[in-house]
Design a protein around this nucleic acid. Sequence first.
RNA 1: GGCGGUGUAGCUCAGUUGGUCAGAGCGCACGGUUCAUACCCGUGGUGUCGCAGGUUCGAAUCCUGCCACCGCUACCA
Length: 646
Amino acid sequence: MAEPFYVTTPIYYPSDRLHIGHALTTTMADTIARYKRMRGYDVWFLTGSDEHGQKIQRKAAEAGISPQEYVDRIVATFQELWRQLGISYDDFLRTTEERHKKAVQTLFRRLEAQGDIYKSTYHGWYCTPCETFWTETRLAQGCCPDCGRPVEKVAEEGYFFRLGRYADQWLRFVEENPDFIQPPSRRNEMISFVRGGLEDLCISRTTFDWGIPVPGDPKHVIYVWFDALTNYISALGWGTSEQEKFEKYWPAVTHLVGKDIVRFHTIIWPIMLMAAGVAPPRRVFGHGWLMVSGGKMSKSKGNVVDPMVLIEKYGADAIRYFLLRELPYGADGYYTEEALVERYNRDLANDLGNLFSRSLAMVERYAGGVVPVPGPATERETELAAVVRHSIARTEQELERLDFAGALAAIWEVVDRANKYVDEAAPWNLAREKQTERLHTVLYHLVETLRVLTVLLAPFMPGLPPRVWPQLGLEAAPQLQEWESIHRWGSFPPGAKVKRKAPLFPRQEGVAAPVAEAATPASTVPQITPRKEVTLTEMATVSIDDFARLDLRVAEVEAAERVAGTDRLLKLALRVGEEERTVVAGIAQVYQPEELVGRQVVLLANLQPAKLRGITSQGMILAASDGEAISLLTVDRPIASGSKIT
RNA sequence: GGCGGUGUAGCUCAGUUGGUCAGAGCGCACGGUUCAUACCCGUGGUGUCGCAGGUUCGAAUCCUGCCACCGCUACCA
């Protein structure tokens, strides 16, 4: 019986599109889910959407549609983002689903029947300009502590959950389970919060009706946290006649949440469960925020970063890598596009991608593309193997504690060591001196290192292995792609045919380097500087060899159509000699599809394929642009399709 | 206001119980190499370890005070 592992993200609120911060939590969850699957766990990965509440109701009304229709539309964008990011969730729970509503009502009835829920009146202080509730204790001379203006006393009839009754039980639980709340700094905060005394929690509202009705009192709807948190068990079938999933996966759960909602997950949620006689979750991890210019992302600050745009530009793997690499354990990280490009170029292009590139190039050049039989290992190989072994152990450790940045740092120990190994072993010298056995030993250890790296990186960058295995000639050897196999150093089968292809992560050129600011204070969030236009004089010169690396071809447009939902993109079917290519081009504002058919255009044929709007674009059509006008490059007189441009 | 935390090279940060603990990565400078995506490898400098006292043979590491910054302080998705 495989050990169960259940991982969840928060269910996101579909009042708006998701931003890069949501992608962070979900990417973390996906990475740990993929890792645990590779380790043989029986994994269940849940995400979803929290669809009730006043804000949704209001937004839907503004849009002139029903709340359900409104959330249906937004949730579709969620699911599209997760698809593009490669999120491998097993279930997507929507709180408007019957299965969820039933579970919430069952839980409500149960707690009410045992006296843990009662009807009373909610009192609080409300600052109308700030739209914020305050408790008595936090008021500054009876006024709003934020703006100093007077506050209003508000009272509303509501149902209350007896949180306070369980404070001691909670403290005992947390004491007996020191790893329950992570990181420890959050744990301490929560403990001191509970020690300060727990008040009962108001869990219903009467001011709107887009929600789950209170059983037997439909004037009230069940409010936010009682509704939302229950998703973690309603999705497993809790409280129904079909709750095998609940029995299997609960409470072996890891809840991943942002630091802003740690309290709800570590205090309210476990107490709801305790009251219901259900075991509390095993682990709640509160990660930091991804900060952007101006602090936390928010629509009003206008600093929201759309992950979809970044995925189109840099690829899902690169975005996942950045998100996972940039947040030190439990702390905040900082996003700027420059930081993203710098990470990308340094870690992915220069170090990792280039290691694959140079290694495979040498196997092709010095061994005819066939992985050779290694000779006896020397101290160099022993040391390389030791670094690999250490890195694997550390990666596993860091992943268990959800330190993704630490795990990636551990993996890069191998990347760095392997690059150094190439330099020390200098295969080009061995080839020149005809030290064939030694040369074969080095090449073998290089490809074995690439294999291990690919397995290690699979949970982080799921798009990588499918691109790498064919290059290593291992696409038909699934057992060598498994996690367990990397514990057996030297498993790479000699005789495999490698096939070097385009760089895995081509360098991102043309984005302005970060402006060197003198002594930026540590507390200052880096500013996002607009992308700089590169002028002629600023471009570095290239050699004729650099130019020769571009495979430019004449292609004929066979068909063209607009890409639905965009106003700039055209999908083109091209004939390049004998070959057919699909290319997406951003020229729809200037060119009509029908005027392009039959024309000859210039194609950059060996550009790394990219997905645009879900369509894989296999190359790029060249065009001139002065910022507004666009003019396609074409040939001066007709010539055979597929002709090379030199 | 209350509770907790942080302050170490230009930047981001490691530094268990006090004695090679003054470090890593990035950036910068110089050198090497040519397999590779102008990439990789090596070498190097800078720090009064927030400030001021104290304990100790000895403190970045313990104690006190001060300064600065951050987190939590309930019904907000």
